[in-house]
């Protein structure tokens, strides 16, 4: 036993900074993967940053006045203008640097919003920011509904999910009747230097993508799937596992678009059936076989389209 324990010595982690930029003591629900995603993103960027954050879960849990969890300069703004405020901060820094009022060092400007603050309410500000080509990283932490006000549907809620404003019942047996807005493709269509999807369950991939976004010469958009145990009605300890399943079933594929070139982040192999992902999630409990088959068909279709965009040969059907 002594020999075995001698081998296992705690060595400092490589490529994973130890500093915490979001302090303990925040009031996120148990097992919140959204705050985990934020923790990883901030670690990847480092101390020199200014963060503008739209209203949402992350703002509610981190800054109940007079307390704050943030160890970095942080501005809370309304739902619709996180991207606009970040644009202003970036321009302000440029002007101050030109006048010699601040030291000439790189300061990353980060805007962050939930899926409501990005895909619904903050959409025009974000689109304007990307169109003006300002050097801001926009991070969307997507938990697929308005969770902090009590699980109302957003345009990022996937088809079939039951929320309090799209409940599954006799009239609408599927719950949410529309498909998730493909925000990453919309951002990529603006022709910005860097766009990517990520998930904190694959943290090395996420950190690499954040660092790429930081080095991009212009705006960058990151869409991060963050599992919400409360809203998805899953046990808190399985938050990481469901993130992995969302990626492995093709419901939320990981890819990046760098200067117009699409690239798949995980090797294309046979997808797991979507039922693996739906099983155990309370928001999908009402789905019958017909609806599941319908969703599976759509997921396959989207996956094939993505493979084509990324220039990967279709190999799933022959080998599976």
């Amino acid at each position: 036993m002594a020999g075995a324990s001698e081998k296992k010595i705690l060595k400092p982690l490589k490529n994973f900074p130890m500093e915490e930029y979001i302090n303990s003591g925040h009031r996120a629900c148990q097992g919140c993967a959204e705050v985990l995603a934020v923790r990883h993103v901030l670690k990847a960027i480092g101390p020199d940053m200014i963060l503008a954050m739209a209203t949402g879960c992350m703002e509610i849990i981190s800054s109940p006045y007079p307390l704050t969890s943030w160890n970095v300069p942080w501005i809370h703004v309304a739902f619709e203008n996180a991207a606009a405020v970040a644009s202003g901060v970036e321009s302000g820094l440029k002007a101050l640097r030109r006048k010699g009022r601040i030291p000439d060092k790189e300061i990353t400007v980060l805007a962050m919003g939930g899926d409501g603050g990005t895909t619904d309410i903050g959409f025009q500000a974000l689109s304007g920011m990307m169109e003006r080509g300002q050097k801001v990283i926009y991070v969307c932490v997507d938990n697929e509904a308005y969770m902090n006000t009590g699980i109302q549907r957003s345009s990022s809620t996937p088809f079939g999910a039951s929320t309090t404003t799209s409940p599954a019942g006799k009239v609408h047996p599927a719950g949410q009747m529309t498909w998730k807005k493909d925000m990453t493709a919309i951002a990529a269509a603006h022709g910005i230097p860097y766009t990517a999807t990520a998930c904190p369950s694959f943290y090395t991939d996420l950190i690499k993508k954040v660092q790429k976004a930081k080095e991009a010469n212009g705006p960058a958009y990151l869409h991060i799937l963050s599992v919400c145990p409360t809203g998805w009605r899953i046990p808190p300890e399985k938050a990481i596992q469901y993130g992995q399943l969302a990626v492995d079933t093709g419901v939320f594929p990981l890819y990046e678009v760098e200067n117009g070139v699409w690239k798949l982040s995980r090797k294309a192999k046979a997808l797991k059936p979507v039922t693996d992902y739906f099983k155990g999630q309370g928001r999908y409990r009402h789905l019958d076989e017909k609806l599941t088959a319908f969703i599976q068909e759509k997921v396959n279709e989207r996956w094939e389209r993505l493979l084509k965009l990324c220039g990967v040969e279709l190999q799933t059907e022959d080998q599976a």
Partner: peptide, 21 residues
């Protein structure tokens, strides 16, 4: 209260102990 509701002490949420949950 500071002007603009500014919180000047970074990370002071650590005074709230979530361990009681």
């Amino acid at each position: 209260i500071e002007p603009g509701g500014v919180i000047s002490e970074p990370g002071n949420a650590s005074s709230y102990h979530t361990g009681t949950w």
